[in-house]
Design a protein around this nucleic acid. Structure first.
Length: 879
RNA sequence: GGGCGGUUAGCUCAGUUGGUUAGAGCGCCACGUUGACAUCGUGGAGGCCAUUGGUUCGAGUCCAUUACCGCCCA
C-alpha cells in the first residue's frame, strides 16, 4: 500500500506527471474512424511571447474542454503552434543586433537579417510553448506548427494568388505611420502618445471673389502646402453662406473648395479645418468622401518635396518656421495661442510620427464577408457569450478593406513581381522563370494573413484540389471549439470564418468562447509598463499549477472581466489542500480498518445520509453537464467546490465517522462508499486540476501504474438517484445540528460541562424524523451527555430553528452564558417575522393578486403565511 | 463621434423563463485543536440590488430615463 503523504507537494508531483504524459505521448491523436472527433486549434501565441495570466486562463479553458471530451469518449486533437508575429519579432532581433554588434538591419541586408531572425527563433523563440507545457495542456505536441513554416507558407501564397486572380486583392493608397528616423512604417502598437505643449495658429484663407476670409486653426501650418480643401460642419450656421465657395490657399495661391462634412468639430478653433489628405488620417477620409486629390509634400526622410515651392529640401520644423514668417509678412497669420495636445511618438526612435500616404495592398472584404455573417445568423457558428454576435454583425456590416502589406522583412514576402522594364505584374505561387528581369514586391504580408488560415492550414491544407485525399483535414475540420480574447474578434475570428468558408466551404469552428479580460486588482489591464502582471510561473511555483488553473477559472465568469490579485490563488490552493486531506483521511481510515481485526464488513443501512449524498452527487453531475455545455466554466468549478467542501467534507465525511467510530460493524463498507464517490469527484475535477487528480487517483490504487485518469470515463448522471425527500430530511437534520450549535455558542467553556441536549420538534415532519437523526448528533456537536426529545407542547425556552427548538440541560452547575444575546435575538426575529407576516397578509388581501396570480403561487403564499404565523406563536411562547 | 457592456454586502462576484425573508468566496468579529485538513472548524455582524419613472397582482430580474464606469471601432 502506497503511503498517502500528509502534504501535497505540487512542484515535484506536477513534474512527474508532466513527464509521464509527454514521454508516453498519451495526448497524441490520429484519425480514428471508431470515434467521434473533437478538435481544437490553439490560438498561436507570438514566438517572442512570454506566458502571462491571460494565457493561463485561455489555455486552461481549452484544456478543460479537451480533457472533458477525451474522458467522454471522443478522439480529441488539440493542435499547438506559434505565430511568427512579424513586427514584434523583427523589432526584438533588431534591438539585439544593435545591442550586441552595434549594427542595423541594413548593415546585414535583407537575406542575412532574415536568417538571423530564424537563428534567433531556433535559439530563443518559443519560450512560451515550454511554459505552456508547465501548465499541463493536453495538446498533441507532434502536431506543432509555425505560421512561417513551409506548409503554412505554401498555404499563404496559394490563398494570396487565388484572391488576386479572383480580383479581391488590389493596390491602393493608405495613410501609414511613418518614422522618418528609422525610415519604417509602424503599426499602431508601436506608437505611444505624449502630451506636448504647442501653438495653435490661426490662418486666414480668403474667400474667392469676396473680401471675406475663413480663419483656420492648425498646429501644423507647414502641411498647408498639401491642402486640397477646407471643411466646415454642415450644421454650423456661421458658415452656411459659403456653400459652393472657394478659398485661396495662402502662399501656394491656388483655389481650393469649401466642403461641408460632419467630421468637423464645431468647437475646435474656429470650426473651420484645412484638409490635407496626404498627411492626416482623418483628412484622408474626408478626402475620400469628397473625391479630393491627396497631395504628398514630404520625402521619406521627412523633408519637404518638390510640391513644396521654395521650401523644398527643408525639414518639417524648418519649413514650419519659414512658413510662419512668410504668413506673417503677407498678413495671413491672424493669431497664435498655446495649445496642449497628444502627439504620436515612435516607441522605437522617439521620432514624431508622420502620417504618410503610401501604396499598400488590400483585400476587398465586402463580398468575401457576406457568407460569414450568415453562418453566425444561422447559428452554425455560436458565440459565447452571445452578445459578441452584435459586435460581429456591426463590424461586418461596415467592414473596411483589409490592408495586408507591411513594410517589414520578417514574414511572408508578397508573391508579386514587377517587370523591370514593362512594369507588368506577375502573381503566382512560384517566382517567374526569368527572375533576373523581375523585382519582387519588398513588403511582407500582415501576420493575420497567415493566422486566418490556421484552422485548416495546420492540418496540411494545400488547395481545394489536393485536399480530397487529406485524411486529417477531412476528419478534423471543421474544428469544434475556439477559445480566444474578444479583442481579436475582427482581427482573427471573423477572418477565420471568412477564409474557412471561402477555402473549405465550411465553417472553421462551431463554438467560440470569448474569455474574460484579466485585469489587476484595481481593474487595470495587465501590462508590462504598469508592472502589474504577476508572473504566472512564480505563482505556479508558489501555489501549484492546479491551484492557479482552478483559481483563474473560478474567478472568470463568462462575459465579464476578471480582477485578479495573486492572493486570490489561495482559493485554488486551499481547495486542493482540502481535496487532498479528504483523500488522505479516507485512505488512512481504510488502511486502519483493514489492519484492525474485529471491524465488521456488514452492509450499512442505506439511510438518509447515503441517499442524500448520492442525490447531491448526482445533482452536481447534472449541474456540471449543464455548465460545461453552456460554457459557464466558473459555475462548473463553483459547483464542484461547494460539493466537495460543504456537502462531502463538512457533512458527509463527518457523518461517516458515526459508522467508523461508533457503529464499527459497518465501518469497512462505509469507507468504501465514501471512497467511491471521492474517486468520481476526482474524475469530475480532472479537466481543471489534472495534476493533483492524477496523483490521488494513483494513490488510491497502486495497480493503476502506467495508466492515466485522463482516459477513464467521465462520471455520468444517474437521475434516479436524485431524491428530493432525502434532501428535505437532511435539511431537517442540518437544521437540528445548527440550532444545537447555536445554542452551544451561547456558553463559554462548554466542554467542561456535561449536558443533555433537549430537542423539541416544531412540526410533524420533524417530529417523525427526529429519532433517525439522533444517532448522528453527538458527534457533530461534541456532546458528552444524552439527547432528550421533548414531546410535550408546553413552553420551551431555547434556541429555535426552522424545524427544531433546542436547549441544553446542564447536569451540574450552569456555566456562564457568554452573553445575553439569546433573548435579544428572539425579539429581533419576532420583529422581522411580524413585518414578513404583514407583507404576506397585504398581498393575500389584494383582490388583484387573488384574481390574477396563478393558483399555485397563491397556495404557496398561503402556506408561507400559515408557517410564519405558527413560528411566530412558538417564539412568542419562548419569551 | 458610432457600437457594445456594466453598476447587488467592506472587496470580487452569483442571482436560469418576473413569484420564499436577495446568495457565495475573501475580509471582519467571537469561540474552538482527543482520531484528514489552522491552507482548518463552528457561530455572527454586514445589502432602500446606482437614479428616476413606467409595465405588472407582484420587479434585483422587463421597458425607458439620468448619472457614473469600462471595452471595441473611428
Amino acid at each position: 500500500m502506497k503511503e498517502f503523504p500528509p502534504k501535497y507537494e505540487p512542484i515535484e508531483i506536477e513534474e512527474k506527471w508532466r513527464k509521464f504524459w509527454e514521454d508516453n505521448e498519451i495526448y497524441k491523436s490520429s484519425v480514428n474512424s471508431e470515434k467521434e472527433k473533437y478538435s481544437v486549434v490553439i490560438p498561436p501565441p507570438n514566438v517572442t511571447g512570454m506566458l502571462h495570466i491571460g494565457h493561463i486562463l485561455n489555455n486552461t479553458i481549452q484544456d478543460i474542454y479537451c480533457r472533458w471530451k477525451r474522458m467522454s469518449g471522443f478522439e480529441v486533437c488539440w493542435v499547438p503552434g506559434m505565430d511568427h508575429a512579424g513586427i514584434a519579432t523583427q523589432i526584438k532581433v533588431e534591438q539585439e543586433l544593435k545591442k550586441n554588434e552595434g549594427k542595423s538591419k541594413y548593415d546585414l541586408g535583407r537575406e542575412e537579417f532574415v536568417k538571423l531572425i530564424w537563428d534567433w527563433k531556433d535559439k530563443y523563440g518559443g519560450i512560451i510553448l515550454k511554459q505552456l507545457r508547465k501548465l499541463g495542456v493536453s495538446v498533441d505536441w507532434s502536431r506543432e506548427r509555425f505560421t512561417l513554416d513551409k506548409g503554412l507558407s505554401k498555404a499563404v501564397k496559394e490563398v494570396f494568388v487565388d484572391l488576386y486572380k479572383k480580383g479581391y486583392i488590389y493596390k491602393g493608397k493608405r495613410i501609414i505611420n511613418w518614422d522618418n528616423i528609422t525610415q519604417t512604417a509602424l503599426s499602431d502598437d508601436e506608437i505611444s502618445y505624449t502630451e506636448k505643449r504647442d501653438k495653435l495658429y490661426y490662418v486666414k484663407y480668403p474667400i474667392v471673389g469676396t473680401d471675406e476670409a475663413l480663419i483656420i486653426a492648425t498646429t501644423r501650418p507647414e502641411t498647408m502646402l498639401g491642402d486640397t480643401a477646407v471643411a466646415v460642419n454642415p450644421a454650423d450656421k456661421r458658415y452656411e453662406k459659403y456653400k459652393n465657395a472657394k478659398v485661396i490657399l495662402p502662399l501656394v495661391n491656388k483655389e481650393i473648395p469649401v466642403l461641408f462634412d460632419s467630421y468637423v468639430d464645431v468647437t475646435f478653433g474656429t470650426g473651420a479645418l484645412k484638409i490635407t489628405p496626404a498627411h492626416d488620417i482623418n483628412d484622408f477620409e474626408v478626402g475620400q468622401r469628397h473625391g479630393l486629390e491627396a497631395l504628398n509634400i514630404l520625402t521619406k526622410d521627412g523633408k519637404i518635396n518638390e510640391n513644396g515651392l521654395e521650401f523644398q529640401g527643408m525639414s518639417v520644423n524648418e519649413a514650419r518656421k519659414k512658413i510662419l514668417v512668410k504668413l506673417k509678412e503677407e498678413g495671413y497669420l491672424v493669431k497664435e495661442e498655446d495649445y496642449i495636445h497628444n502627439v504620436a511618438i515612435s516607441e522605437r526612435s522617439g521620432a514624431v510620427i508622420e502620417p504618410f500616404l503610401s501604396d499598400q495592398w488590400f483585400v476587398s472584404m465586402k463580398e468575401l464577408s457576406k457568407p460569414a455573417i450568415q453562418v453566425v445568423k444561422d447559428g452554425k457558428v455560436r458565440f459565447h457569450p452571445d452578445k459578441w454576435t452584435k459586435t460581429y454583425y456591426h463590424w461586418l456590416d461596415n467592414v473596411r478593406d483589409w490592408c495586408i502589406s507591411r513594410q517589414l522583412w520578417w514574414g511572408h514576402q508578397i508573391p508579386i513581381w514587377y517587370h523591370k522594364e514593362t512594369g507588368d505584374i506577375y502573381c503566382e505561387t512560384t517566382p517567374p522563370v526569368d527572375i533576373e528581369n523581375w523585382n519582387q514586391d519588398p513588403d511582407v504580408l500582415d501576420t493575420w494573413f497567415s493566422s486566418w488560415l490556421w484552422p485548416f492550414s495546420v492540418f496540411g491544407w494545400e488547395n481545394s484540389e489536393k485536399d480530397k485525399d487529406n485524411k486529417d483535414l477531412n476528419y478534423y475540420y471543421p474544428t469544434d471549439f475556439l477559445s480566444t480574447a474578444p479583442e481579436i474578434i475582427f482581427l482573427w475570428v471573423a477572418r477565420m470564418i471568412i477564409s474557412g468558408l471561402e477555402y473549405r466551404n465550411d465553417i472553421p469552428f462551431k463554438d467560440v468562447y470569448f474569455h474574460s479580460t484579466v485585469r489587476d486588482g484595481k481593474g487595470r489591464k495587465m501590462s508590462k509598463s504598469l508592472g502589474n502582471s504577476p508572473d504566472p510561473l512564480v505563482l505556479m511555483d508558489r501555489f501549484g499549477t492546479d491551484a492557479l488553473r482552478f483559481t483563474i477559472v473560478y474567478l472568470a465568469p463568462l462575459g465579464s472581466d476578471v480582477l485578479f490579485d495573486e492572493k486570490n490563488t489561495e482559493i485554488g490552493r486551499n481547495f486542493i489542500t482540502k481535496l487532498w486531506n479528504a483523500g488522505r483521511f479516507l485512505m488512512m481510515t481504510r488502511d486502519k480498518i483493514n489492519s484492525e481485526s474485529g471491524l465488521g464488513n456488514s452492509e450499512p443501512e442505506y439511510n438518509f445520509v447515503e441517499k442524500w449524498i448520492d442525490s447531491r452527487y448526482n445533482e452536481t453531475i447534472k449541474d456540471i453537464e449543464f455548465y460545461l455545455n453552456s460554457y459557464r466554466l466558473n459555475d462548473y468549478t463553483k459547483s464542484l467546490y461547494s460539493f466537495v467542501w460543504s456537502d462531502f467534507c463538512d457533512w458527509y465525511i463527518e457523518l461517516t465517522k458515526v459508522s467508523i467510530y461508533q457503529n464499527k460493524s459497518a465501518a469497512k463498507k462505509t469507507i468504501e462508499r465514501a471512497l467511491g464517490i471521492y474517486e468520481n469527484v476526482l474524475r469530475l475535477l480532472h479537466p481543471v486540476i489534472p495534476f493533483v487528480t492524477e496523483e490521488i487517483w494513483h494513490l488510491l490504487d497502486e495497480s493503476r501504474e502506467g495508466k492515466s485518469v485522463s482516459f477513464i470515463d467521465y462520471p455520468k448522471l444517474d437521475a434516479s438517484k436524485i431524491d428530493e425527500d432525502s434532501e428535505k430530511l437532511f435539511d431537517l437534520f442540518k437544521d437540528l445540528v445548527t440550532t444545537s450549535r447555536n445554542e452551544r455558542a451561547k456558553y463559554t467553556a462548554i466542554n467542561e460541562y456535561e449536558f443533555d441536549i433537549c430537542i423539541k420538534p416544531l412540526n410533524t415532519t420533524a417530529s417523525y424524523s427526529v429519532d433517525n437523526l439522533k444517532k448522528s448528533l453527538h458527534l457533530l456537536i461534541n456532546n458528552k451527555g444524552g439527547i432528550v426529545i421533548e414531546k410535550s407542547t408546553g413552553d420551551f425556552k431555547g434556541t429555535n430553528g426552522e424545524f427544531f427548538a433546542v436547549k441544553f440541560n446542564f447536569k451540574n452547575e450552569i456555566p456562564k452564558m457568554k452573553n445575553d444575546e439569546g433573548k435579544d435575538k428572539l425579539v429581533k426575529e419576532l420583529d422581522s417575522l411580524k413585518s414578513y407576516i404583514a407583507g404576506l397578509e397585504k398581498k393575500l388581501n389584494n383582490e388583484n393578486f387573488l384574481a390574477k396570480a396563478a393558483q399555485n403561487v397563491i397556495d404557496n403564499e398561503n402556506q408561507k403565511l400559515k408557517e410564519a404565523r405558527e413560528k411566530y406563536e412558538k417564539i412568542s411562547k419562548m419569551l
